[in-house]
Write a protein that binds this DNA or RNA. Structure first.
Lengths: 224, 224, 224, 224
DNA sequence: AATGAATGAGGTTTCATTCAT
DNA sequence: GATGAATGAAACCTCATTCAT
């Protein structure tokens, strides 16, 4: 399967006519519906028919615009990753206050996962299939390099200031934050059963955020 | 759907004859195959036919012993949870050395996830379906209460000794450890793509274990 | 398919031992259950498994005693016919009062159908399959000759007395009575929907019996 | 299960194109084949595969147009009822000659049942299942009210003329005619075995019609 | 660009029946 | 005599996909 650059879409030109505009609209509706359906039912469980129905379109259009189910999923995947990437890049961090910035990153990441269950669900599905689609996509590879982007300057400044320990690496910090935020969201339903707390409760979410901020900061600040 | 106590299986009696023995064997072979297949392909993607083939049995026996696909999955789920629970309980911890014990728990948890990808995969599938099966099962509810069992005495001892901070709760500690171990395993394939490291590499796994042990311990020890 | 005389059953001897007695009991339980199940679901819809369950036996015994599903049905059919035949023969009619006797026959027939929905249901199923089984069975052929048995003497007496018209034939009288009684029972559920009356209501049943008695008698008595 | 008005079919518009026309044809072919198969084998015994084969279509189209086997049966049921209803309404009766008209109704009814064994078979199947489908269908309820339509004016005229007895009710007359005509047809195969006459023989059918006309008329005319 | 009609492969499940003790 | 285990054929139904306007 080959993938084309997301933005260089054949149905999108700046001077597009009504037909083209309509086409882009339909395509987007399908993509939105597909994201929702794949997030709820996974790739295998997601039904073409349900996607086209939720998009107020019909099956045939999915094949017209995306080729087949797998290509549609790939498109959903790329779009979903890209959204996350864009949101992350949009974070406005003041490197002068590394600890505050770090807290901001943690809070953003946690909130993003909570607010975008489809991102979490699709990532899980990808891992079920051993990143089969992700590893095929050029678009995704282009994003992947920048994934720890926010942390690097922040960490450097903190280390220069003597606030953060020298041993801390951006990669470990990134994975630590990801773990502590992602797990809560991705496993919230089984955790609710097992831990006996309601992980959908916002108060409990706030408490968790406070806790993991503390954990992360304790893991990076210099020893007293 | 109703579930029966796992151990009170109609095909298992201590004085069982050859027939009953054979039957139990067949049932177990199906369960093992089902665990594998559901772990690899999820509930929707898992095929009855493949399960029966891998079990060297035939489709019909699955319905004979388990009723239908969903009940089979529920059985797999319960068995998988129970295995984890038993392994956890079998951990021999010396509460006299809370830090060493804590490290043991972290290492055990991490290794268990690494060694049992089916547990991770099935948990993910359960969360995709909002713990639909887990919340229905009495067997699972029976386990759930004890899930933080190992940590409580360990934490208490550490706090009495003045090694751990008073504010630390078993629940937060449990979730912290789970996050830091689970995420690495569950998302290893997409992480490999995004972070550019091979998460299946044992050296990298060791490095991560060392890192998270450090993070967890820093999060619980008393401030200097 | 061959059929054996019903009473000459291999499992029935007057000096039977305990085992044989038990066997006959099991066989009867199966037959009773089968009658019920076939009556409710038809031949195609009737499930072997449900029959054995309702008989507190197991599938295997059905094959042990009856051979296969079709032979079981044939047995049910024969038994059901025979029951009707025996009940009919047991009618004690006073040929001296032909009209009263005729009323008795009509009432008996109607009540029998009402009280034995399984007879009606199984007859319908037989007709669906063009009397496939009935025409194969020797036992049934033996019964068939006597089917109008009650009416012949009654009719003759009435004609001799000058109460009944000479043209009336036993066959027509038999079919007329059968029609007027059977249809009410066999079609009671659709009739309830279409006619808007509750055909299960005993008052309505009584009313109908009165009506058809009148119709039949008017059809046989001599013109004024 | 919900039913839609039969005539308001999505595949039928007065200005339909070739495609829609073809679609309607396919749907009709399936319906015709289904009617035949269900009539021959009942609901349980009727096979989807046979229906699609006889319709020169494929299994999938049955689900495309009707949803499932039960809905298909419901459709067959409704159509079959409607056909009968339309034929009945089309009867051109001269109320001026009540007796002649009555004979016409009797003959029509008898002939209809003879000529439409599928109607009889499907009614029987419905009664086996206690009118499960009929009672669910709005379309059928709409028909049901008019079922004795032909008899009412005829009966009134006869009673005004002093030809028919005042006590006769349309409902009883309707049920009497139905009984005497339906039973002959519905039970013709077992009757052939039991009575020893060939109920498929047209001469015998004519004889029966003559007989029941006589019975019905004797049941309504004023006493001499 | 859009869509209803059609399809075949394959999915889950059911069923009557036989095996083996 | 009785029964649990096993089976293969076939049933209903679903699904992604293509055809034909």
């Amino acid at each position: 399967m080959t993938t084309q650059p997301i933005s260089d879409d054949k149905t999108f030109t700046s001077t597009e006519g009504k037909r083209a505009q309509q086409a882009r609209k339909t395509k987007n509706k399908i993509l939105t519906a597909a994201t929702k359906v794949f997030a709820e039912d996974g790739f295998s469980g997601g039904r073409i028919e349900r996607i086209s129905r939720e998009a107020n379109s019909n099956d045939r259009m999915i094949y017209y615009y995306f080729g087949n189910k797998e290509a549609l999923f790939l498109n959903v995947l790329e779009t979903t990753y890209l959204e996350f990437y864009k949101a992350e890049k949009a974070l406005d961090l003041d490197t002068a206050s590394p600890i505050e910035s770090l807290k901001k990153v943690i809070a953003f990441t946690f909130r993003y996962y909570l607010d975008h269950p489809e991102f979490v669900a699709i990532l899980n599905d990808e891992n079920l299939h051993r990143a089969k689609h992700s590893s095929q996509s050029e678009n995704i590879k282009n994003i992947s390099g920048n994934i720890q982007g926010n942390l690097v300057p922040l960490l450097e400044m903190g280390q220069q200031n003597g606030v953060f320990r020298k041993e801390v690496t951006a990669k470990n910090l990134y994975l630590t934050i990801s773990s502590l935020t992602y797990f809560y969201c991705s496993n919230q339903y089984t955790l609710t059963v097992f831990v006996g707390k309601n992980f959908q409760d916002t108060a409990f979410q706030d408490e968790w955020l406070k806790h993991i901020s503390d954990v992360v900061i304790r893991s990076v600040i210099v020893d007293a």
